[in-house]
Amino acid sequence: MDQLSIYGYVIGSGIMVVVFYSYIVYLYRSEKRGHKDYEKYGKIALDDEIDSKPVEKGLEPVKKNKE
Protein backbone atom coordinates (compact mmCIF):
# COMPACT_ATOMS: atom_id res chain seq x y z
CA MET A 1 0.00 0.00 0.00
CA ASP A 2 2.80 2.38 0.95
CA GLN A 3 4.72 1.40 -2.19
CA LEU A 4 1.65 2.11 -4.24
CA SER A 5 1.13 5.57 -2.81
CA ILE A 6 4.79 6.44 -3.36
CA TYR A 7 4.52 5.50 -7.03
CA GLY A 8 1.25 7.37 -7.14
CA TYR A 9 2.85 10.54 -5.84
CA VAL A 10 5.86 10.37 -8.13
CA ILE A 11 3.82 9.72 -11.25
CA GLY A 12 1.17 12.24 -10.23
CA SER A 13 3.74 14.97 -9.65
CA GLY A 14 5.39 14.16 -12.98
CA ILE A 15 2.13 14.48 -14.87
CA MET A 16 1.30 17.74 -13.17
CA VAL A 17 4.69 19.24 -13.96
CA VAL A 18 4.32 18.30 -17.63
CA VAL A 19 0.77 19.66 -17.85
CA PHE A 20 1.70 22.88 -16.11
CA TYR A 21 4.75 23.59 -18.23
CA SER A 22 3.00 22.76 -21.48
CA TYR A 23 0.27 25.18 -20.47
CA ILE A 24 2.86 27.92 -19.99
CA VAL A 25 4.30 27.17 -23.41
CA TYR A 26 0.80 27.16 -24.90
CA LEU A 27 -0.04 30.52 -23.34
CA TYR A 28 3.02 32.29 -24.64
CA ARG A 29 2.90 30.62 -28.06
CA SER A 30 -0.71 31.41 -28.77
CA GLU A 31 -0.07 35.02 -27.96
CA LYS A 32 3.06 35.17 -30.07
CA ARG A 33 1.20 33.77 -33.05
CA GLY A 34 -1.56 36.30 -32.55
CA HIS A 35 -4.34 33.83 -31.78
CA LYS A 36 -5.04 35.37 -28.43
CA ASP A 37 -4.40 38.60 -26.59
CA TYR A 38 -4.29 37.96 -22.89
CA GLU A 39 -2.83 41.25 -21.83
CA LYS A 40 -5.91 43.22 -22.85
CA TYR A 41 -7.65 41.88 -19.73
CA GLY A 42 -5.26 43.88 -17.59
CA LYS A 43 -7.13 46.98 -18.80
CA ILE A 44 -10.26 45.91 -16.91
CA ALA A 45 -8.89 47.48 -13.76
CA LEU A 46 -7.83 50.74 -15.41
CA ASP A 47 -10.92 51.50 -17.40
CA ASP A 48 -13.54 50.69 -14.84
CA GLU A 49 -16.20 53.39 -14.99
CA ILE A 50 -19.67 51.98 -15.05
CA ASP A 51 -20.28 53.37 -18.52
CA SER A 52 -16.93 52.45 -20.03
CA LYS A 53 -16.85 49.88 -22.75
CA PRO A 54 -16.22 46.34 -21.45
CA VAL A 55 -13.16 44.53 -22.79
CA GLU A 56 -15.46 41.65 -23.58
CA LYS A 57 -19.19 42.09 -23.43
CA GLY A 58 -20.99 40.42 -20.57
CA LEU A 59 -24.59 39.47 -20.13
CA GLU A 60 -26.11 42.60 -21.60
CA PRO A 61 -29.59 41.25 -22.52
CA VAL A 62 -30.35 40.23 -18.96
CA LYS A 63 -29.46 43.70 -17.77
CA LYS A 64 -31.67 45.49 -20.26
CA ASN A 65 -34.73 43.69 -18.95
CA LYS A 66 -34.05 44.77 -15.40
CA GLU A 67 -33.84 48.43 -16.13
Partner: peptide, 12 residues
Amino acid sequence: IGMRREKALYIS
Protein backbone atom coordinates in the same frame (compact mmCIF):
# COMPACT_ATOMS: atom_id res chain seq x y z
CA ILE B 1 -20.90 38.21 -11.08
CA GLY B 2 -24.23 37.10 -12.52
CA MET B 3 -25.17 40.69 -13.37
CA ARG B 4 -21.80 41.70 -14.76
CA ARG B 5 -21.23 43.65 -17.98
CA GLU B 6 -17.60 42.57 -18.28
CA LYS B 7 -17.47 39.01 -19.48
CA ALA B 8 -14.00 38.07 -18.26
CA LEU B 9 -13.40 38.10 -14.53
CA TYR B 10 -10.52 40.36 -13.60
CA ILE B 11 -7.61 38.89 -11.58
CA SER B 12 -8.90 40.36 -8.32
